[in-house]
Amino acid sequence: MDRPLRLVQAAPPVTQLARVIEALLVVASQPLSVEELAAAAADDAARVEEALQLVAARFAEGESGIVLEHVAGGYAFRASRDAAEACGRLFERPVERGLSQAALETLAIVAYLGPCSRPDIARVRGVAADSVVANLVERGLLAEAGRSDDAGAIEYRTTPLFERIFGLGSLAELPRLDDLGGDAAEIRKRLEQIAASRGA
């Protein structure tokens, strides 16, 4: 009896947990985070992640018509890409249909600088943002995020739906602003060139 008595934990195997997670993701209408899955499955977060790997392997592009994706800070099922055409014949997607250039710029500003108010957006774009913001709120891509501390203007942020529509795991997956160009020094140089050519 030199070995200590080991308690045999009757934890269900991860495969069983994976089946529970599949079920949870099927009934959910929005991405579920690991914490939410763990709470619903009454299991450990680490084991949930392990199980999610099993689910991801099973529901992968090319393997199944349903695909597990990490999106908007959680996990969700979507249709596989090869079924997109068929899905498109069945459903319309009004949320992202006909997003104007102004709407996309506004989304970009809120995604990078948010939460920010309509005056903040107008400052960057140089035109009033009221109707664009109202339209994006109606589409569910922007949502109110309280009021600013100084002026008390309503501030907006992007919604999880925005991340989902654009297939972003989180806002951190947006490209870095510095990588997008728009170097102030370079613009300055060009402005001066223009001024010089005018003066000449």
Binding site: E105, L174, L180, G182, I187
Partner: peptide
Amino acid sequence: RLAEYRRMKAAAAWL
């Protein structure tokens, strides 16, 4: 300001 706007335009193009 122009640089900021240009970056946002680029971000919108990326979107």
